[in-house]
Design a protein around this nucleic acid. Structure first.
Lengths: 234, 234
DNA sequence: TAATAAAGTGTTAAAAAAACACTTTATTAG
DNA sequence: CTAATAAAGTGTTTTTTTAACACTTTATTA
């Protein structure tokens, strides 16, 4: 019953451990996910979520950061574990338990990396995701659900926007993430009343109408407020 | 990069997979967790969360149900995966990745099982949990956090109560789970307005004051409402 | 029969959310 | 230079929800 005494005994089977990471981005119009195309069997030519096997002496979180860096060239990405997917037959070639993560990136920071396998990574709108290799569609769905819950209770939407953004862009992002609309005046009042946004002198450029003010998310302020028992909500 | 082609190659290392399950109960006064006492090294005599290694051809969810059944004699328990804990050095005797679950049971249904290892399982109040074997305290904390978030957004508190309960019992449970108090009149109005409770003819027994009406959670009604886009909240 | 202890209800005040109309302003077309 | 435009940005009212708190009811027990 205790896990430890058997850890090296015959009940210690051979499992493969992998990580898979659902990478979300926002291009200003749609919420997207980074999807790769498989080049080998099984599931040849199927879409899949980027991932890799975890090395023998590697923390899965580090493995995910490694994959993400190879894929996007980025470090210090917002990253959360979703959960493990570990069904007996989820992998046709053996027992592989995968630990799924999701991450949020600023899509403008993304630069396709010239690695052998990553050149065919493409941003796909979340409503266009369909069939995928292994149980990756299930992983994607879980990640999207989790993100939708999370984004209402934590100020993580900003991870998907440029450092500086307008209130209209922020509102539009939330509308796309949550698949609902908001009243402009009410949305502004709510988000500004939280006192989490720093208004900048800078104004929106290259639009053919009145330019909007740019804002920046104040993460220090959020940290302070959190200590004072403030809770972000939508 | 793809997980499949390496699944049987030399990069397929030997990991042990275990499950651990944080079992919550409510005795009418306190929210409790089922804790076992370890009888072997490492962490001899430390408190720990019940768990076991996952068999070679076993789904971790099934493994958890097996552990739970051996421990409590119960089946069909409310059970959710929390997440995987997989740090390189979390287990002193080898690489063991554990998938953590939490479950909610009606404490009155619990019967200590006479298995060799389970006789020393004890219900411990959540505020009394301290040092634990491995990273089990961290697992416990995560599970409690998750439960506190979950219980506000899903009608899962009822899993901890007897089938039939009074509104005062329900209120008291929520107060203990969330560590806050509620106004009696307002709590009643809110919970009854959701139309999720069936009032019974039966009244509370053996109290030395006016007996309260008993209620039952209407899970069919909840399923219906959910289809109509109803969202439970606190 | 009266005291009790908690069950259960009603009312009001305050705050938050929703609805919606309006004003402002940089840009561009004429 | 002026007017039309298109979206930015604000103000007001109504409705709903939450919070506070006092009160009434009723089975039990002394």
């Amino acid at each position: 019953m205790y896990e430890k005494e058997r850890a090296q005994s015959s009940t210690h089977f051979t499992f493969g451990i992998s990580v898979d990471c659902v990478v979300f981005g926002f291009d200003g119009s749609d919420v997207k996910v980074l999807v790769i195309k498989r080049g080998t069997e099984p599931y040849l030519n199927f879409s899949a979520i980027p991932g890799d096997l975890v090395h023998e002496q590697e923390d899965p979180l580090d493995a995910t950061k490694r994959v993400l860096n190879e894929l996007t060239g980025l470090k210090d990405i917002y990253l959360e574990q979703l959960k493990a997917f570990a069904g007996v037959n989820r992998h046709p070639l053996g027992r592989v338990v995968t630990i799924a993560y999701y991450s949020l990136i600023k899509i403008s920071d993304y630069n396709p990396q010239p690695s052998s396998w990553a050149t065919d990574a493409t941003w796909t709108s979340i409503q266009d995701i369909e069939e995928m290799a292994f149980d990756h569609f299930e992983i994607f769905s879980s990640a999207l659900n989790r993100l939708q819950e999370r984004v209402r209770l934590r100020p993580i939407g900003f991870e998907l926007l440029p450092e500086e953004f307008t209130l209209a862009e922020l509102q539009y992002l939330y509308e796309k993430l949550l698949d609902q609309t908001f009243d402009k005046a009410n949305f502004r009042k709510k988000i500004l009343s939280m006192d989490l946004l720093i208004p900048l002198e800078k104004m929106q450029k290259a639009v053919r109408h009145r330019p909007a003010r740019m804002y920046r998310f104040d993460s220090n302020r959020y940290a302070d407020l959190t200590k004072k028992n403030f809770h972000f909500e939508l």
